[in-house]
Nucleic acid binder design. Structure first.
Lengths: 187, 187
DNA sequence: AGTTTCTGATACTCGGAGTATCACAATGAA
DNA sequence: TTCATTGTGATACTCCGAGTATCAGAAACT
């Protein structure tokens, strides 16, 4: 079963993928297949030959875009200041109105398509485990109990921000949020 | 400027609204206008005469559905047990797969339409302020500092659950989550 | 050389939102 | 009563985007 005729042009592959990511970033998941084709300077059929449905290309572009920027892990010497960096980075996705709009749309898309949810979930878990070096150091310093539920900690942090972003509530002050996470709400 | 000809049938109004809510609950925001009309046993035109766009009818149905069930405010005598009730109620929206699917879709819709976000935000703020009697009592008992940011507390709670629900991560144990909220993560 | 498969182009089908028009029914005004 | 006005269901449209089908030509294999 060797492939015989003309081979798929890798240039075309790249242009389509690139166009999809660009469109996803510039106007969210509502781009059309025609837009992808013309932005890639490529025939409509070539897009559909690579991606049977719009969903497929959206998933591919999303996965690419998510892997694009993975922030470095801070190491400031204390849990509190390390966490402050994390919180600030998390808030960054909602800073400008345009960025907030994209983030909203992407998380919204997760509500309509489990595959999108999976991509986001995987990407987020990846980032989180990456930043667990912070917690290891904190535990070694005695700042954190060894059996703390780190998933819970991470998800409470991100969850608050995503929730507020989604329903358009102003984001909290990073230090205040940090204090709540570390010390809780009871006296 | 008195209205002259035939008057709009209030029966038709009611049937349409009812059908919209039912469809929203049974199959999420993806119902069609034709479905509304036929479920209401009403002409297509009558639907469009009342709601110019599908967005309009979706917003109306959503607002109705959100106001439908507002849980009672617990008063068990201690902050912890009161909060446990709140947490359990919050988790309830994600208990069955079908319910989780609807909740996901609704919150997802908030990412595509600011008006949906506003409806959800308003409804949630409403419920939250309603349950602030809990915190008043807790402050009186000395269980909570008087200047605690109750929005932050509430949003961390709901945020975690919504976030996990959206990207399909198993929800936390209510008691464990409670402990994190009340005591924080540092030793 | 001949065959296979890619390529861009074009023209379709299909489904759902929204529009337009119809004959008819209900209401108010004259 | 008569007439104008507006709601009613029915039907047939337009529009747009996803997905399909077909084409002639180009590239790569035997």
């Amino acid at each position: 079963m060797k492939p015989r005729g003309r081979k798929p042009d890798p240039e075309v592959d790249a242009r389509i993928k690139q166009a999809a990511v660009t469109l996803l970033v510039s106007k969210g998941p509502s781009f059309t297949m025609d837009e992808v084709a013309s932005a890639a300077g490529v025939g409509r059929a070539s897009v559909f030959r690579r991606y049977a449905t719009k969903r497929d290309i959206l998933l591919d572009a999303l996965a690419l875009a998510m892997d694009a920027q993975v922030p470095p892990v801070p190491d400031t010497g204390a849990l509190e200041s390390d966490l402050l960096v994390i919180v600030t980075e998390t808030l960054a996705a909602w800073n400008s109105p345009e960025l907030a709009e994209r983030t909203r749309q992407i998380f919204g898309e997760a509500g309509r398509d489990p595959a999108v949810a999976e991509i986001i979930r995987t990407a987020m878990r990846d980032r989180m485990t990456r930043s667990w070096a912070i917690y290891d150091r904190a535990i070694a310093r005695g700042e954190l109990s060894a059996d703390a539920d780190l998933w819970l900690l991470s998800d409470m942090l991100v969850g608050l921000v995503v929730y507020r972003g989604l329903i358009d509530v102003p984001q909290p002050d990073a230090p205040q949020m940090l204090r709540a996470l570390m010390c809780g709400f009871t006296r």
